[in-house]
Design a protein around this nucleic acid. Structure first.
Lengths: 225, 225
DNA sequence: TTCTTCATGTAATTAGTTACATGATTGA
DNA sequence: TCAATCATGTAACTAATTACATGAAGAA
């Protein structure tokens, strides 16, 4: 820890939380778990480590309290910390990274049976369901005005909707995939694609391209080949 | 490498490719990049390492060829490898893990300006667009019958649709978010949530729950009767 | 011939995870 | 007063990434 390395997005995630208010290490970890983990999942232990790095770099300071004879650390952001955060927020960011083992298993369907594929699809749907439960609770709490930080409500809606859009998408896909594979023979290698559906997906992608090229206001439009 | 550690999902990803046909290390890496990276992204170097592990465990064997005076390794799956793969495929898998730095930056909007948030939203949309381009090409190639493995067409449709559903979702979200934030004041902390929209999202989640509880619940429920 | 891109890796480093440890608090 | 769970971390390990290196093939 003597060498203060470069900050990672995870460091900034913690720093961002500290910008809202000071927290103890435990509260920080909790908060991460509850909110950020949906699109920036990290192990618990990491969340105890990072704040130390922030402090070493002068972006936060810590004050020790005690509970009985255990120490308890509370972190507060410094002005330098706020500036560092603002700088980071003003730089471009990375797009979504999706990782899905279930999809991987489905992708290798030709080395197993259709029955197994169907199981994986059900698991995917169940996963979305589980996730939805907690997401709803958060959303409802906010609507009842129990949200801890009312000045963050609109922001929370923005990202909360992204997450729920994703969950909705997974659910719909799973439903569609269930129907599709219901008509598959036992051996996935002998399954015929649903050509019209495939055509529709390609078309949809092309439509996105058009809409994008039509209304685009950033970079120059790439020349058509 | 002398201690043959446990196989990871990444190992199985390579093993799965080998089940299709033998490949050289380079071809494996290419294939990963082109197809699997969409839902199982890994660095290039990793893809050269893993096959060695597979060989050490007797799940693949390698034959050395040469190009000039450089060696070139071709990997082939063994019967044990096929069994290991089938076993893995028959076990439950992990659900999606979503990671998005842009969303993280948007989440911390209260430490920056609405203008910055809008930029991040545009970046997210651009990202989807970029991704869509390549996705369409793959899809079109398949439809023209240029797909290298026709027996995998239906499977590819399954996962390809998942990816495109996701891209479509991102695009729609970005469009919605653009509209919403167009009405935000300069300071995101003073932005009011769109309450009806928020209510709608919660309702949608509840609807998913109902549909789920009605129909499935882990295993396929036999039709009422 | 030289330059660039394709092909094929190895080495060094690190971000992140799993496992472990233990005091404090609560409630049965 | 005992067990469970909350709170608070540290240590060991590893999966994965970035950086580096270099031969081969084809283009200019």
């Amino acid at each position: 820890m003597s060498t203060p390395t470069q900050l990672t997005a995870t460091s900034y995630a913690l720093l961002g939380l500290l910008a809202v208010k000071p927290w103890t290490a435990y509260e920080l970890a909790q908060q991460m778990d509850r909110t950020l983990s949906r699109f920036w999942p990290r192990a618990r232990s990491k969340l105890y480590e990072e704040p130390k790095k922030l402090e070493a770099l002068g972006l936060a300071r810590s004050s020790m309290g005690t509970v009985g004879k255990r120490r308890r650390t509370t972190y507060t952001i410094t002005p330098r910390g706020r500036r560092a955060l603002a700088d980071w927020l003003a730089r471009p960011g990375e797009g979504p990274v999706l990782e899905c083992e279930l999809l991987l298993k489905i992708f290798f369907a030709d080395s197993t049976s259709t029955a197994e594929v169907r199981k994986r699809i059900v698991e995917l749907r169940d996963w979305g369901q589980q996730f939805t439960e907690t997401n709803i609770q958060v959303g409802r709490a906010y609507m009842k005005g129990e949200g801890a930080f009312p000045e963050r409500s609109a922001i929370n809606q923005l990202v909360g909707t992204f997450i729920d859009d994703f969950l909705e998408m997974v659910d719909r896909w799973a439903e569609w995939a269930t129907d599709l594979t219901a008509r598959w023979p036992d051996d996935p290698k002998r399954a015929e694609p649903d050509w019209p559906a495939m055509e529709a997906v390609v078309q949809r992608g092309l439509d996105r391209s058009s809409r994008w090229n039509a209304g685009y206001r950033g970079r120059p439009v790439p020349p058509e080949g």
